[in-house]
Structure formats: structure tokens, C-alpha cells
Design a protein around this nucleic acid. Sequence first.
RNA 1: GCUGGAGUGGCGGAACUGGCAUACGCGCCGGUCUCAAAAACCGGUAACCGUAAGGUUGUGUGGGUUCGAUUCCCACCUCCAGCACCA
Length: 818
Amino acid sequence: MADENFYPFTLIESKWQKAWADSAAFKAQHSKDKPKYYLLEMFPYPSGKIHMGHVRNYTIGDVAARYKLMQGFNVLHPMGFDAFGQPAENAAIKNKTHPAAWTHKCIDWMKTELKRMGFSYDWDREVSTCAADYYKWNQWIFLKMFEKGLAYKKASPVNWCPSCETTLANEEVVNGGCWRCHTAVEQKELEQWFLKITDYRERLLEDLNKLMQWPQRVVAMQANWIGRSQGVEIYFRLKGSEKIIPVFTTRVDTIFGATYIVLAPEHPLVKEMIKGTSQGKAVLKFIDKVAKESKVVRSSADVKKEGVFTGAYAINPVNNEEIPIWTADYVLMEYGTGAIMAVPTHDQRDFLFAKEHKLPMRIVIQKSLSFPDATQISEAYEGDGIQVNSGQFDGLPNQEAKIKIAEWMEKSGIGKIETHWRLRDWLISRQRYWGTPIPIIYCKKCGTVPVAYEDLPVELPQDVVFTGEGGSPLGKADKFVNTNCPKCKGPARRETDTMATFFDSSWYFLRFCSPKFDKAPFDKEETKYWMPVDQYIGGIEHAILHLLYSRFFTKFLTDFGILNFSAEDGSASGGNEPFVKLLTQGMVLKDGEVMSKSKGNVVDPDGIIKKYGADTLRLYILFAGPPQTEMEWSDKAIEGSFRFLNRVWRLVEKVTSHQSPVTSPGEEEKRQIHSAIKRVTDDIERFNFNTAISAIMELVNYAYQAGPTKNVAEAAVLLLSPFAPHACEEMWELLGHSGGISRSGWPKYDPQVLRQKEALVIIQVNGRVRSKINVAPGTSEAKVKEMALADGSVKKWIEGKPVKNFIIVPDKLINIVV
RNA sequence: GCUGGAGUGGCGGAACUGGCAUACGCGCCGGUCUCAAAAACCGGUAACCGUAAGGUUGUGUGGGUUCGAUUCCCACCUCCAGCACCA
């Protein structure tokens, strides 16, 4: 936009982008003379264009990075691309190009766009996960895990997306569907590679306590996902047999109220126990029916619980009671032991089921002195109380009984105190081409053999055909598949699955510390200096997946002796927690909805940059609201940010062109400047960028009202520079400075200046504001009291009423109670 | 159901440890400049009563603590997000 009414942002922005690149202004170097600050934003998947979500994420990070740089920190602020993944493959099938070509084109374009935003990245450290010198180290890490038994292959039912034609990790199944295409996920029995993340479940849970500076909800989500539950595994015996049915419960205090047992329809014992009984046919029919139901339907809460009696009985080991064994769809094979003891009086699901099928009930926890009959109750009582009908445990509070019963059962050998976890091992095999080949060779003689370290990388072959007709494309690349066994040198076949891309992103923050290191995934000395990441910024959608996996990687790499760093203050991350502080930014909405092509409500950053410049876009996206919350994009409101930049520009013009006399700054002006410095500094520290910007606006408004001076202009430009760096560099130069604004130091405020000459004291009568008076700071209470009582409008309110009390907050407020 | 969060003008939002509710911006209204417009600059803008001075009400709802509550406590409502027949 070449309009004389507006400042020439197009020229200015390209000028400074070039200047920063030419002078390597943001190059990070290991140095001992300055404190380090590692600021990281989640790297993007190179889908082509950047969207407003990227703009917001990276602008938040850039302000923090530039601010820390001005404060004199040695800032590491890198950027790269999470470049493997399925969209590239889909694009290849559709456009008849190669995934590599498509990806590289996207990366080039995204880089151009990121540079156009003026982000202060050290581009010398750029990494792409699809580059052989990156994924080589994926393979290297995998081999280490294989050696230590953390990577293993096993046949098991796995999540299968029929549309993507690949397996999925549990973390990638969202509401029973594929996280990417939402197709309903099926179960399939396959032999697949897993990572033993369950070995780290205790530490992954325990160390959440160290993450004091993470959003609580992310910590809660991870704890939830890991899902520890403590209880007792109870051994019921099948009547007329030596077979044991283990049952897991967190409420062992209710064991004396167990009136029946329920097995999941898939439970292997079910088919065995019905052999030759009259119930056999009905049970088989039921099992068959459940098997046909999809997982989604079966787990929806409002569906009525169904089940049938198996005809068999179990012996409750605490009282040798015979209780019937049922099978029902509300018991899941995947959780616990696939069998439950049912206590209808103290579990609502059991209650509903027992009522429906007229099964017996017995109260064993009494909530008050009144003792309802089990036939009278209308719902299960799940709260605390006193044990009844519980043998030698009668009369104990149930929480106490829980411990005593568990200990007693363990001692008597009829149960075992156990901890159950929700977290499962991480399935990483993908039947896809565009990923890291798993460095394993299958030999008829030697079995599963790892590729030798010196033979890495196992390169992805380029000449592969993409038909989109299913099956792993690598499986059809004979040249790739057929190889020799590293051990016996005989003919062998390569693994044709590739790694899930979350493997790639689980350690890229370590690679950034030494992106060109060629002896290991990273240089231990460099990670020791730069790690942990001081501030990590990204979307909430990674609260579980990426953040949990990265924590896992950091822990085992430390255990392997490959990684070694400690947090400087020791508090946030006493070692092996990768991210000290986490900020999850909110989404950018338009018309109350997420921007999407199908809804036609996408605002393209490119168009905004053309119209107003990158500085305006940066400023607006931060000014619209706090970074953690959702923001509503407004085409109208962004003009306010543009107007403001022009207003600052004209302020600088006035100061430089009119040669306004350099007067020594007045008291009030100094106070305004220092107050703004304090507010902006405090707000940036807390990531309250929206209020930081409004503080600068107030300073500029003051300058217009009081008459602009060089002092005010310089302060405003310095404070604004992390937000609108191009315009501020230019204005800084116009104001007669050289050497770049990012090296000019962050302004400091003087608390002395902030001390006011006069304090405004609010006078309240009975808690309501009635008047205001100015007093000298530190005026005695007696004097203030006297002044308040003498105030005309106050007199009116206290007339004829006895004053009961005075509340005085020095230099701030006085409340007269009448 | 459990977990985490949010509810403030016409709109986005502010109020850091209880002390002037609505800063800053958008929008709207008025003015200055101009032949006119754009741009800019200045002023006004929670609701209600009042010409005004001034007053009353007001931060999802209902209670409580306090001299004083958007802020703390209790109960509830609504919305968002995550998990969930988890035994």
C-alpha cells in the first residue's frame, strides 16, 4: 500500500529483514559470559502456507525472544520443520509428485513466509526431520532402545485406521476415530514395534510435580492419561475347579458386599466355563452379539447394560460364599483383569445391572446410624462410612478398613495389593512411506537383527511408486527390501514399516543445540549448556502426545548416559524434564469458529501483511487478548493496531523534523516514561502482551496530549520494538541511533521517579466512594482523617450520624463507617 | 460422572497480594481541519432517574465473611476443553 497517509511499512520491513539476515543478528553461540535462554516454539508441519495459528504461536515466542535478547541474555531461538508425515504422501498420490519434492517446496514457501513476519530465528540451526542427517539419528536412538529392551516387536490387537491404511498409537485415537481423518478405528491383530513407555510411567507421573510452570490442565491431562489406580487384585476360585479368576478393585472395602462376578464377553474363561452347561447357547449368542458392536457404540454411556448368566459360580475368598458368574458388555477386557466383582449397593453401574436382572444386594458400608434395607435403596452409596456385614472389620471407618482388608488378604494369599495403569506401550510402526525406516533386518537364520550403527542411515529409497492402493509402499521396493543379514551375510529382508512421526519430534529440541553434530544425535556439551528449554510455546492439542513422548525421551536418553543437563535453579526441572515453562496458546477464531477452508472463514496472513505490514499483524494478534485464551479475529479491530503504529510513526516524525527543543524532561514526563517501562516489563514477564501494548498506547497518548519530546519517543520505540520490530528499528535509526535496536538494551525504570508527589486518597463512607482528595505521600493518619471529615461532600453523608470507625490505607483510601 | 478452565459495557478485553469496576482498543455519537472527502487531531460513550448538580443499580444466580468483594468461602446455573461403563 503506497499511500502517503501511512508509514512505508513494505519498504521498511524488507529493508530490516535483509539487514538482520546479513548481520546474522540472531545467531546463537555457546558463551559463558551471559546467561542462556532457550526459547522454543513447536515446529510446524510444512503443509504449505502458514496460517493464523502459526502467526500467533510464533509471534508470542518472538516477542519473548527479542525481549530476552534486549535484556542481555544469550538467546537460542531456533526453527525447523516436522517434515515427515502422511499429507505429503497423499499429496504425492494426488498430484503425481514425490513426497520429498512436495515437502521441500512447502518448506521453502513456509520459510519465506516466516521470514516475512520478521521472526528472530537463528536460521543456521534449521533442521528438517526428513533429512537423512536427521532421521539417521532417529534410527540410532531406536537401535539404542532396541539394545536396552525399550523397543520390542510383538503381535497384539492394534488400532487400525482403514482410511489411512496404517496403525495408530492409543494417543492418536480420538473419540474412537483416527486423529487425522476421524474414520472409525478398527482393531486388528498385527505384529508391530512398540516402545516401552510403561517402564517410565511412575517417573512420568511423579515428575509432573516438578512442572510448576506448566498450565495445570496440561499436567492434569497427562496424569489422567497415565492413569494410576491403586487397589487389590482378588483371587476368586471357580466353583468345582482349581481355576482362579483374578479381579481388580479400588474398593476392597466393599468385598463383603460382592454378590456376583462379571467377566468381559471376550474373557477366555467364559467359553471354558460354559462347556456342557445349559446356559452355553445363550452365552455364545450374547458373545457373538457384543463382538459385532463397534467399540464406540459399546462404550457410549447411555446404552443399556446387557448381560447373561454363565451358569457357573465363584467362591468369594473372604467368606467362602458362592456367587453367580455373569458376562456383560459393561466390563471391558482391556482394563484391569477383564473381570469385576459386583457390589450393587456401592457401585451405581452394578446397582442398575443387579436391579435389571434381580440379583441379590447387601449393604456393607453404612453412611449414618440409620440402616436402610438393601431392598429399599434407590441408588448405590459410593461415599464413605462405617463397615457393616464385613466380618472382623465391622465398625471400622471404610477408609481404614480398605487398608486393613488389603493387608489381611495379601497375608492370607487371597489377594495382592496392586497398582494399575492406563498408559500402554507406544505403538510406533506405520505402514507408510514418508517416515524414518525402522533399522531392522529379518533373517531366516538369525531372526530379527538390528542394522549396524556404521550402516546408518537406512535411507528411504527415492524410486517408489505411489498408487494409493494400500499396503506399505516400501514393501514393493524390492531393491530396498532385499538385503543381506548383518550377522550371517545371507539373504535377508528389511523391515518395511516406518516410524510414527511423533518419534521425530520427541527429541528435535535436543538436536537444535548442535544441529550439525555428526557423531551422535546431539553434542552432550551443547545440550548441557542450552537445556532445558526455558520457555516452550505451542498448541494445547499436543498436551498429551508430543509433550508426554518428549518427556519420555528425555528421561531414557538421560538413563542411557547420552544426555546430561540440569536446571539452573533446580526447582522446575531437577534434571531430565525438558521444558521448564510451558505456554499453550489459544486458537484464532473467526465468527466464533475455528478457521477452516470448508467453513470459508480463513483469514490469510499474506493478505494482511500486504495491506498493513507484518508489524501490524504481530501487534494486533497480541493485542486482541491474552495468549492463552482463544481470540476472535476482527477485520475491523486490526485497523486500530495499524492506526497506532502510524501514530507512533508521526510522533517520531514530529520529534525529528521540528527539531523540538531538547528540554530536560519534566517531572510528569519522567514519571509517565518510567511507569510505562515498569508496566511493560512486568507484563512481558507474565506474557500479558495485550496489557503491555495498552501501556505503550497510554504513553503515546500522553505524548500527544503533553507535546512530544525525544525522550518519550525513544522510550515508546524501545518498549514497542519486540512487538513491531521492523518499524521500531527504522524509527530508532531516525532518532539518531545505530547498531540495531535489539542490541540497545532494555530500558530500566527508577523506582524513585515513580514515587508520586501527591497521592490521591479515595474517601468512602460506609464503603461507597463519596469523594477524593490529594495529600502529600506519608501524611499522618490523623491529618488525613481531619481532611476527610472537612471535605464538603463527605460532610453531607455523615451529617448527624455518629462516626463508628475509620479504616485507613495509607496514601490510598479512607473509609468512614457511620 | 471425574479433571481443568471461563462467565465483566454494543464488541475484544483490563483491574498484579480484597480498596476509584469497565484501563487500552473496536464500534458509535459530536467537534476541528477541508470546496468536499479520506487521513489526522480533540471530546463523549455501562444502565436507569434528572436540564443540571447529583443520585440509584450494576462484574452468570442465590447466600456468606468483611468497614469494603469482579477478587475470599458455600451452594447453584450456563458454556468450553480433556478423560471416561477405569471396576
